[in-house]
Design a protein around this nucleic acid. Structure first.
Length: 714
DNA sequence: TTCCAACTGTTTTTT
DNA sequence: ACAGTTGGAA
């Protein structure tokens, strides 16, 4: 038991890593060394000869997690991890479908639609079928279709008792037909197809079942119904499934995650050992005590209590601000103080419940010249210009991809207007063929026919040239000959886009370098492999990483990360827990888990702040402290105000949005001789120009000049 | 085809 | 507040 691999593991970790060949559930608390256990288990199985690298199937949710697992494994063992079945659910499903595309009923060059592509496909479908998109909103339909697929249901299996549902079901069926015709597959389809493939093809199923004797699942609490069924099918009777998860960190129920899979798993796989990893190596005691106390308020839990060998550490600092503006000011000051103490900005996180909250915070940080980096938002492969470029590439790979064709047939403009397109679509529909094939028929007359022919000829010529070129040159050739580069060169604000297109060539070069020429996850050629890569991992959330900056992100985005110091902002009822959550079943419990995740991100110092008033949707809203604050043991907290004194203040801080020395402040109750009682909700200007906005109980909202209005405090 | 004004919907999000 | 989308006019 003293092989170097196992050294330094605590008893629970060791037990998990060295479990015999049986299915097990590992309840891994935050900061308990989950990834280490997972990778060490794989390494242990291989090293001790209990499994060969090819007999291991390890699945994660994100590419980041998969990459980390591979990297750590490579560091533990001198083996080639390439070719091992370690990846994301979608990545592995894709690999399986590529390998058996014929049996799965897919073309060899099938392309993957991301969410935006899928939505576009649905809009196109509705238009083609003349369906009122107000009655059947595309977004809702997308949600419906994905929901069905994630339940493992094909259109014909969906129950529908009213006309509306029947229509939805019909549209689902039509959507699947359209995808099949075009040779494209959406995210949920990757999993469903691969599930059906295993279910239908007995020999194939048995092959994989006997091959993968060890299946390891990361973040098991986030699996949805289909993912669980898929794993069950793959495991068969022989495999040992090693499921690692934390029910207290389940924060994705809103997108279909079923924590219930954990209980089902215990039953379905006759799990005898539930191992709890409760020793936390990340945070000081006070932080863990707070997290434990909070999460105890949840009813449905498997039960777990984090502890640490470290001391209690500092108290949790709680700050009540008058406004979101003042809250931001407080955070800026504290960040600067931490910086002075020598804490690097990259070790500090500023978390919020919803993205909209970042604006005020960013504003304050910008004004204070504190470098920061916001996570979330547009990713590289989701940018408009990149999407256009990828559409050209997709069309080169697969001419039947109507979505790709429609995206670029008139971009840059080639004089192919709506009329020409409509007649082309008419031909395609009546013949049951793709737009490309319809264009080949050359049935269109006159100028429209000529311009369309010119387009198909262009694509054909690019296809021929590209066939002989290495991937980066293919991309470059396409960019030059499609007219994209010329188009963005002539556009006044096209410089960034040009840069991104250039970056696409680099991305292709990097991709080719990393994945040796042939056989990337079973893709038939480099271009398809690259396009798959673009769909399956849309790239970094923000381009310039590495730079020393404060880390801003939502609590969701912070899951899995840790920081020396953490600020959790906006702890108000309605915001956190979010008001919408109260309406959903178990909504508040999920919000509480979210808060639990937020707290457990902090290693040494934790700030929690809330504001009595904040701008939301363009309106000033008054809030009260979140119930989650009351659920934290008071003895762990230190309440502070802006000046650092221990008691809450009477007067607004001088730097706040209040009207300076005039004595009025936002939130103050006032009365007016004519309008009656009200509350100050906003202010602007100074001295003689000072005005306040007052929300009167009976007279509505009004702006009043302080110099003239006879306002009285009340 | 292009541009601007009006309109909308704003929790969280990976693949 | 604000960004993204759409519909109509130029």
């Amino acid at each position: 038991m003293t092989t170097p691999l196992l050294r330094g593991l605590n008893p629970e970790q060791l037990a998990a890593v060295t479990l015999p060949h049986e299915s097990a559930l590992i309840l891994a608390g935050a900061g308990s060394g989950k990834t280490r256990v997972l990778t060490t288990r794989i390494a242990h199985l291989i090293q001790s000869g209990l499994a060969s690298p090819s007999g291991i199937f390890a699945v994660t949710f994100t590419n980041k997690a998969a990459k980390e697992m591979l990297a750590r494994l490579a560091a533990l063992l001198p083996i080639n991890t390439r070719g091992m079945w370690i990846g994301t659910f979608h990545g592995l499903a894709n690999r399986m479908l590529r390998a058996h595309h014929r049996e799965a009923g897919l073309p060899a060059l099938f392309q993957i639609l991301d969410s935006a592509d899928q939505l576009g496909a649905i809009k196109r479908l509705l238009k083609a079928l003349n369906v009122d998109d107000e009655k059947y909103p595309p977004k809702q339909l997308q949600h419906f279709i994905n929901g069905c697929k994630e339940e493992g249901l094909r259109a014909h299996m969906v129950e529908a008792f009213d006309p509306y549902s029947r229509k939805q079901r019909e549209l689902y069926a039509a959507y699947d037909e359209q995808c099949q015709r075009e040779g494209v597959v959406d995210f949920a389809e990757l999993l469903l197809r691969s599930y059906e493939l295993l279910q239908r093809e007995t020999a194939l199923r048995q092959h994989y079942q006997s091959r993968f004797r060890h299946i390891l699942v990361d973040e098991f609490q986030d699996t949805n119904h289909l993912q669980y069924q898929w794993l069950k099918l793959l495991a068969g009777e022989q495999a040992a499934v090693f499921a690692v998860g934390d029910d207290d960190q389940s924060i994705y129920a809103f997108r279909g995650a079923r924590v219930g899979n954990m209980a089902d798993f215990e039953r379905d796989f006759q799990v005898e050992k539930v191992i709890r990893l409760e020793q936390n190596y990340r945070s000081h005691g006070n932080i863990l005590d707070a997290a434990n106390a909070l999460i105890r308020h949840n009813q449905s839990r498997l039960g777990k209590n984090l502890w640490t060998a470290e001391g209690s550490g500092e108290p949790i600092r709680v700050f009540e601000a008058h406004s979101d503006y003042e809250e931001a000011g407080f955070i800026v000051d504290e960040v600067k103080a931490l910086q002075r103490e020598g804490v690097p900005l990259s070790g500090i996180a500023l978390l919020y419940r919803s993205n909209a909250q970042s604006r005020v915070l960013e504003h304050a940080l910008f004004n204070a010249a504190v470098p920061y980096r916001v996570y979330g938002g547009l990713r590289f492969f989701e940018r408009q210009e990149i999407k256009h470029a990828l559409a050209y590439l997709r069309l080169i790979g697969n001419s039947n991809d109507d979505g790709a064709l429609l995206r670029v047939i008139n971009f840059p403009t080639r004089g192919i207007g709506a009329r020409s397109l409509e007649s082309l679509q008419e031909i395609a529909r009546s013949e049951g063929i793709s737009l490309w094939q319809a264009a080949q028929l050359k049935r269109m007359s006159g100028k429209a026919g000529a311009t369309i022919s010119a387009f198909t000829a262009l694509i054909e010529s690019m296809r021929e040239t590209c066939a002989a070129l290495p991937l980066p040159e293919q991309v470059e050739h396409m960019l030059d000959h499609s007219g994209l580069v010329a188009h963005y060169k002539s556009e006044k604000e096209g410089a960034d886009r040009l840069e991104n297109l250039n970056e696409l060539i680099n991305a292709a070069a990097g991709f080719e370098l990393e994945h040796s020429a042939e056989d990337v996850d079973g893709a038939p050629d480099a271009l398809t492999a690259f396009l798959t890569h673009a769909s399956l991992e849309a790239g970094e959330h923000q381009a310039e990483a590495g730079q020393e900056a404060l880390q801003l992100m939502t609590v969701h985005a912070a899951k899995g990360l840790e920081f020396h110091a953490v600020f959790i902002s906006g702890l108000e009822e309605g915001l956190f827990p979010h008001e919408n959550a109260a309406k959903e079943r178990d909504g508040v419990e999920e919000e509480r888990r979210l808060m639990y995740v937020a707290i457990t991100r902090a290693r040494r110092r934790l700030y929690i702040s809330f504001a009595d008033s904040r701008m939301l949707h363009g309106q000033l809203r008054y809030g009260i402290a979140s119930r989650f604050l009351e659920e934290l043991p008071p003895q762990l907290l230190k309440r502070i105000n802006h000046s650092g004194a221990a008691q809450p203040m009477q007067q607004p801080a001088a730097s706040s949005a209040a009207t300076g020395a005039s004595g009025w402040h936002i939130g103050q109750a006032v009365s007016h001789p004519k309008f009656g009682p009200g509350i100050i909700i906003n202010s602007e200007g100074r001295g003689a120009d000072a005005r306040v906005q007052v929300s009167f109980s009976h007279a509505g909202v009004k702006w009043l000049a302080l110099e003239y209005a006879k306002l009285e405090a009340s």
